[in-house]
Design a protein around this nucleic acid. Sequence first.
DNA 1: CCGGACCGTCGATTCGATTCGACTATTTCA
DNA 2: TGAAATAGTCGAATCGAATCGACGGTCCGG
Lengths: 343, 343
Amino acid sequence: MATMADVARRAGVSVSTVSYALSGTRPISLTTRRRIEQAMLDLEYTPNAFARGLKSKRSHIISLLLPARPGSPQPSSLEYILGAADHAQRCGYHLMLWTADVEAVDDLTQFAGQGLVDGALLMEVRPEDPRIQVLVDAGVPFTMIGRNADPAGLDFVDADAEQTAEAAVEHLLGLGHRRLGFVGGPSVRNPVQNAILQAVKRADAGMNVDLVQVEAECSTEGGRNAFAWLLHSSPKITAIIVANEQAVSGLIRASADFGRRIPDDLSMMCLDMPAHVAELITPPMTTAGPSAAEIGRAAVDMLLRRLDGDVAPARQLLFRGELNLRGSCAPVRDADHQTASDR
Amino acid sequence: MATMADVARRAGVSVSTVSYALSGTRPISLTTRRRIEQAMLDLEYTPNAFARGLKSKRSHIISLLLPARPGSPQPSSLEYILGAADHAQRCGYHLMLWTADVEAVDDLTQFAGQGLVDGALLMEVRPEDPRIQVLVDAGVPFTMIGRNADPAGLDFVDADAEQTAEAAVEHLLGLGHRRLGFVGGPSVRNPVQNAILQAVKRADAGMNVDLVQVEAECSTEGGRNAFAWLLHSSPKITAIIVANEQAVSGLIRASADFGRRIPDDLSMMCLDMPAHVAELITPPMTTAGPSAAEIGRAAVDMLLRRLDGDVAPARQLLFRGELNLRGSCAPVRDADHQTASDR
DNA sequence: CCGGACCGTCGATTCGATTCGACTATTTCA
DNA sequence: TGAAATAGTCGAATCGAATCGACGGTCCGG
């Protein structure tokens, strides 16, 4: 309510002096500073965000671009959001949510053009993501959480898909599994899918590993279908790696329907699933992947550095995915090696 | 980038004319309007949010106050957030996240004083919630999602705890259960807990229903402890109603440890758990409660109405909780009536 | 045919903070 | 001792849009 002019009047100085006292841009004598501070306290003065933003071209607001149809939420999104929001706040920034679809280019253009936000965090980045060009054109600095097909020259934070895939594959091979399945999401050219393939190839030193990959829709039904397909293409399958949170329920349900007990008959592991969700599953789901909250925080850090004038070449940060062993993976049973096709 | 002055120059009119053309506040001739629109297109003009906010005292930003320690997120929060964000956006508003703790009164005071937001949505409202006074003092209109101890005169949207409790209790009694348990959260004076108690009392027409209530911490461990306590105080218990998402994993785990199969030996039902989470559990969890996304939307609606100058007395909206029957509740077995104490 | 009601437009002021140039008083150094 | 640097403060311009009062022109009714 109170304005700078009010404070100035009460402290018996000019408006500019108050401003300098607040920002520290120019030296102010101790006595004057004290009077001003007292006046600010008395009047409960809070600088007006708009006036400040108008003149200084800095809003201290960053936005989180999260294309999300409400109704089919990914639980892990929440971790990113909270991780980012919390950290941004600690750094003196506000976090604004932008949920419009990836394709809503015009809306985004307008949003970016308003000058409301200092920068943006991009989530659910697609290989060819139209939002990137919009932000570049509008001159809004941004950091991606995930990455597009050609991220050269762009800042991003992402899970280390190669390393995570390797850890996951290694674990299952170590348990004796040789016939693996992979369930991905519907996104084109999922980097994780590729990473798994590579990891299997690399590890496959005469082990004769079999890998079947399938893309599932993000729903229980999608998971069911994926499971049926997997079993159809590789009846002797003993372990499944899932990179699609929303399909897990269907996979579990279907595996029960097909009479495959987890982990006795079938091991299952999910990538990038939050711990509290994994704990809910019976048996508790073994997972692999970095902490979403931490990635969110790192993305904020990276963005804020740019806002502070960092002109270094594009920074790209990968997060190691830890393996969280719970109860959904078990050593392969010997019987499976011989006769696993007759169920 | 382009300003109103640029547009005015290009269209050969004055700044004020452009402004009137944009807002429609005063009549503008068709030919002039067209020239202006063309100029705006040519220059890709977007009104500056700060200048607009400074002059008009309206930011078209609302904030969502969601005290959340990242690390222990409630999956249902995400539904509220996305429901609210999406709807706000549709209504031409931006949604800003504020994650500071309920007790961080000073931070909130400053935030509210900045004039950045037109209004606020309050989540995780406590019986005695200091944020309420802060917002009232700052003159920031707000709507609560949930309610405090004395919500008279305040706008809120909430689940209809009485009705939901009644539906839940009725369902279990209908299945023959007479020894019930209730697991609540750590919040003081949880209205749901009370509602359950009342519902049991009301329904108890000589049925001789037994109800044991316990508060659990929001964690797997909390759920485990609650289960042990429940079993200790009421060994013959056959059904549990849970109003604490984060304790469910512990309850499930403990019930397995104690050899109680769900739903054969023990029925379990969770209030206000999102469908996609309930589907993950084995067996799929029966739930009761309204749609979080819908509540989020309704809260936005209510708030925006106030921002549009609605001066009606406080609006208070309760949402019916639908029962979603999945697989975690079953008819009580007759044996339980006679000898359920000897496990 | 003249006065008032409207229409369409413009100039000037305002919102509240930032910042540049200028000015005074004091200090520093050659 | 005089020139230059420094500390401390002020006034005024500025950011970009909203809005009020005013003004010339058109139209209508009496």
